[in-house]
Nucleic acid binder design. Structure first.
Length: 643
RNA sequence: GCCAGAAUAGCUCAGGGGUAGAGCAACGCUCUCGUAAAGCGUGGGUCUCGGGUUCAAUUCCCGAUUCUGGCUCCA
């Protein structure tokens, strides 16, 4: 038979030569490092005989697929270790994931302390060099083999149509698995079990919760150590740690879960961001509103929140038990009510409402996370009510605003998600399949035309329409939505919103729900991680710190500070009787972007000595010139502080 | 809500059945200093809260609360 290699060279082999022997014919080292073989684009074990002419690629750990196979095999090795230690264990799924792998176990109670035991057993298994044996079995045989395993039986039932199944035997562990796998357990070189978490079977909260062990493995100890060090450094940027250390926010158990308090410093950042957005939106034709933070249930019944979002709302009793109110989880129905206060001409469309809107959502107790998932937050919210023919242009104008905001903030690594509905989830979504299909088609067309790179996700839409979500990955590798733009096909009709068209008839407008900077809490969390706590000059709560050389210069420093403060800059004076080095150290630890030193020389000359966070010092700068430069940094919102 | 961890001084953490300790911070005194930590001293704790076991609990057990990672949900 003829084998074609990736470089298009061809070579003759006997029929049924294994991938391993083909690799061996190229180089001994290649055969030794081969974890699998790609036969006409399909991955198979390296020991698999090749039966006919084929294009062959030998997969090693240097290939992305190779690493994935390696980690999947690592998961099996972990499962074998667990099986040896806990013979009654039942196995769920055990896939390779982005940075490692996991396995879901049932019928066993795993604690953090058990991970060490499992790791030790895995090391034993590594040394035993147990071969991964692949067996192809019929559906009937599979049902017999796994009759005592409810999870495997469910999988088998799902795979029902395919006549042949493969399973892998690793020592005493037989697992239903498509493979491929590395040849034997001795291939595993470096691994670490990371943590235990609960995970619902098939991701459904109605199902039983299994014990999931997260772990990772690498081809070498060095790569594993590098990865763990990289994780450690990423976690050093954790907004929840840095934000508290820098005194930007705190929580208090008497206030409650998911209710962070912004300190004066954190509040300053929020206020600066808010001014930036409000000014920018007003410039772009938004009309600002201020609407109530709570309303009668009547309003939410019209909007659909009562039906689709009630679990997420804080509900309050009014004058009597039947008279229910709710804190608002969204701003939309309030702005729709405002829209309806007058008649609207087609000439006056679109109407763009914006509001700095405090919202309340009754998240489940386990969901809260620093400033990222909270029960009360402030959204830079807005609704564009427009004619259908204006939808695309308005959507694009929102994208332009978001892009401007992201660029100004220096937000990197954003991804775009086109979030669609799940037609099978009748409870979560407004039941109007045609409207869903058509609005999703419209949104997709807009996105395609805009040239934005996006991916699609089912079941992520809002209850009233599809959306574009702008996603950010936090230091834990978890994605969160920071900004969202949504098309709403339902609300205008529900609220009987109208405009008078050119022909005198009453038409129903389209609505775009949008944010510009997202909600302040989450965005600040994102920024803390993006900047690793080092906020740019224009956003820093304390922009300038004046340090005095000795205590006698205190009152002069105060007059300098006053002059700087009068220019609209945020400044503090460190008059402590500490050494200059100590004061510099403290200011650097607090990430104050500009440190100004004042000594007798500066006092006589009317100058300042300016130090930036990078350690650079500019001496003898005239005070007026310094203030001018700072004002410039504020105005341009420069991400770099250079003098 | 569920699974796994954690909670000791303002902060970071040590300790351990016989009512607590360090460093930093705070405060006081000395020093008056030129760009990443001057010296000495002082005060500061219901060991998260509520039960239980015990002669004795901060320590062991149970429950609650909050914080952390994950699942489900979500901006």
């Amino acid at each position: 038979m003829q084998i074609t290699f990736p470089d298009q060279t061809k070579k003759e082999f006997d029929k049924n030569t294994t991938g391993y022997d083909i690799a061996l014919s190229i180089a001994e080292g290649l055969a030794r490092n081969a974890v699998a073989v790609s036969i006409n684009g399909t991955l198979a074990d390296i020991s698999r005989p090749v039966t006919e002419d084929a294009e062959i690629r030998i997969i090693t750990l240097k290939d992305a697929e190779g690493l994935e196979i390696y980690r999947h095999s690592s998961a099996h090795i972990m499962a074998l270790a667990v099986k040896r230690l806990y013979p009654d264990v039942l196995l769920g799924f055990g896939p390779a994931i982005e940075d490692g792998f996991y396995y879901d176990f049932d019928n066993v109670e795993l604690k953090q302390a058990d991970l060490e035991k499992i790791e030790a057993e895995m090391k034993k298994i590594m040394n035993e060099k147990i071969v991964f044996e692949r067996h192809v079995i019929s559906l009937k045989e599979a049902k017999k083999l796994f009759k005592d395993d409810p999870y495997k039986m469910q999988q088998i039932a799902k795979l029902g149509e395919s006549e042949q199944l493969s399973c892998y035997k690793l020592g005493d562990l037989i697992d239903l698995c498509r493979g491929p796998h590395v040849p034997h357990s001795g291939f595993l070189k470096a691994f670490k079990l990371l943590r235990i978490a609960g995970a619902y079977w098939l991701g459904d909260s109605n199902n039983k919760m299994l014990s999931r062990v997260y772990a990772t493995s690498f081809p070498s100890k060095k790569e594993l150590d590098d990865y763990l060090e990289m994780r450690r450094q990423a976690e050093e940027r954790d907004h929840n740690k840095v934000g508290r250390e820098l005194d930007l926010f705190m929580t208090d158990k008497n206030v409650g879960q998911g209710l962070p308090l912004l300190t004066p410093k954190g509040s300053t950042i929020k206020i600066i961001l808010q001014r930036f957005i409000e000014d920018e939106e007003i410039r772009r034709g938004y009309l600002y509103t201020i609407t109530p933070l709570l309303a009668k249930s009547d309003l939410y019944k019209i909007s659909g929140h009562w039906e689709h979002y009630r679990d997420g709302m804080f509900i309050l009793e009014g004058d009597n038990a039947e008279d229910l109110y709710a804190l608002r989880p969204m701003t939309c129905p309030f702005q729709y009510s405002l829209y309806n206060r007058t008649k609207h001409s087609y000439r006056d469309m679109p109407v763009r409402y914006a509001e700095t809107s405090t919202l309340f959502r009754n998240e489940s107790s386990g969901e809260m996370h620093g400033l990222i998932r909270v029960r009360q937050f402030t959204l830079a919210d807005g609704h564009i009510i427009c004619r259908p023919d204006q939808l695309e242009e308005e959507f694009n104008s929102v994208l332009d605003l978001i892009n401007y905001v992201a660029t100004t903030l220096g937000l990197k690594n954003l991804t775009y998600r086109f979030s669609k509905w799940d037609p099978n989830d009748k409870k979560k979504y407004i039941d109007n399949p045609e409207a869903w299909e058509s609005s999703q088609k419209i949104l997709k067309a807009i996105l395609d035309k805009s040239g934005l790179e996006y991916y699609e996700a089912d079941g992520e839409a809002a209850f009233y329409g599809p959306k574009l979500d702008i996603q950010f990955k936090n230091v834990w590798g978890k994605e969160d939505t920071i900004i969202t733009v949504q098309i709403d096909f339902a609300s205008a009709e529900r609220f009987k919103m109208r405009y008078t068209d050119a022909d005198g008839t009453e038409k129903t407008p389209m609505i775009i729900h949008r944010s510009s900077i997202g909600c302040y809490e989450r965005t600040i969390a994102t920024l803390i991680e993006q900047y690793a706590g080092k906020f740019p000059f224009w956003l820093s709560p304390e922009q300038i710190r004046l340090l005095t050389i000795n205590e006698e210069l205190g009152s002069y420093a105060e007059t300098v500070a006053l002059k700087i403060r009068n220019a609209g800059l945020r400044v503090a004076v460190d008059k402590r009787g500490e050494t200059l080095g100590k004061k510099v150290l403290d200011a650097q630890h607090e990430y104050i972007p500009v440190i100004v030193t004042i000594g007798n020389k500066e006092k006589e000359e009317g100058t300042v000595s300016v130090r930036t966070l990078d350690g650079k010092v500019v001496q003898g700068m005239q005070l007026d010139e310094f203030i001018k430069k700072c004002e410039e940094l504020n105005k341009t919102r420069n991400l770099e502080t250079v003098f």
